[in-house]
Nucleic acid binder design. Structure first.
Lengths: 172, 172
DNA sequence: TATTGTTATACTCTATAACTATA
DNA sequence: TATAGTTATAGAGTATAACAATA
């Protein structure tokens, strides 16, 4: 690792944890306005996105996909349901589970926020060259998947079938 | 963005915020043991790293570099000082400011934790090809710098001269 | 006995405001 | 008047434990 450039971060300019935290912090700040009306902010949007694409939508499965605790999902879905963005439906196959379904308004809110977040994403990725962007996004996708498989329960991913909505972002 | 692969993240596999959050979460979990003895965990290590490399070590400058609030630095440095890892020294040029200096034990703790974190970093980056790693790290470095310049105060970086210790990680 | 979901609780991290001492 | 640091407080976010309903 050649330490040639002027180091604006003073000793942390090769620290993966620091760089991820700084980049994420910048994204969160920039995305604040894009998810302003959604209860739970970015977390709420992630629930909407997961519910929009998931084929198995019970709360525990969503919590595993999002790397969150079960108890977090209760309050989060409470708020999203109170806002009319999702509704809970008892799973006919397992009466303990409750599936999370997007309402029409929830799907519209998800699509609109997704479009705004796409603009935020482009803004955050502005320092990268055009060809570099796709390579970095693909690498990050593998890092995220690897982290989810190792940090969370290993069997979190195999319980889900193919998503119902294969499209990536609402307006990519 | 071709949606060809099997999507383990169900609708968020192209969302930059989600991927950054998931990758960082995996890193934080994996790094927990590496910074176990350091007050403040990873944040405490970041303070040690910034203090080890900074030429201007007052608390406000450290807070700006770390993207943290002034009030956070007080408690954090209190804990690090109580653990004997840093000491506060009044700035002779400005008696309001207090420079943060690494003790010998603090420098040793920083070096040892840095070595453990290098191993964690390699583990987290395992899904990437060897040549891909450097490219992704370089891209993340630019994203982090860009985020710090836009999210925090724009003049946070110009107040610092070249770092006293140009080396990147203690044991790369 | 194990699992889904809820509730209550506590803990961590962070942000806000007020205060001091210096500039 | 503005800045560096401290203190106290409040808020958001998250994790832990206990419970009810169901498998």
């Amino acid at each position: 690792m050649p330490a040639g450039r002027t180091a604006p971060l003073a000793g942390l300019d090769s620290d993966l944890g620091w760089m991820l935290a700084a980049a994420l912090h910048g994204y969160v700040v920039a995305a604040g306005a894009a998810v302003e009306g959604i209860p739970g902010g970015l977390r709420g949007y992630h629930v909407l996105a997961a519910a929009a694409a998931a084929s198995c939508g019970n709360q525990l499965e969503l919590a595993r996909q999002l790397g969150a605790d079960r108890t977090v999902m209760t309050h989060l879905i409470d708020a999203l349901e109170a806002a009319g963005l999702v509704r809970r439906r008892p799973d006919p196959a397992d009466r303990r589970a409750r599936q999370v379904i997007l309402t029409d308004g929830g799907r519209r809110t998800w699509a609109e926020a997704g479009a705004r977040l796409s603009a935020v994403q482009e803004q955050v990725l502005a320092p990268l060259a055009p060809g570099e962007r796709e390579l970095v996004l693909d690498a990050l996708r593998r890092l995220a998947a690897h982290a989810m498989q190792h940090g969370a329960d290993p069997r979190a991913n195999v319980a889900c079938e193919a998503p119902a909505t294969p499209a990536a972002l609402p307006r990519g």
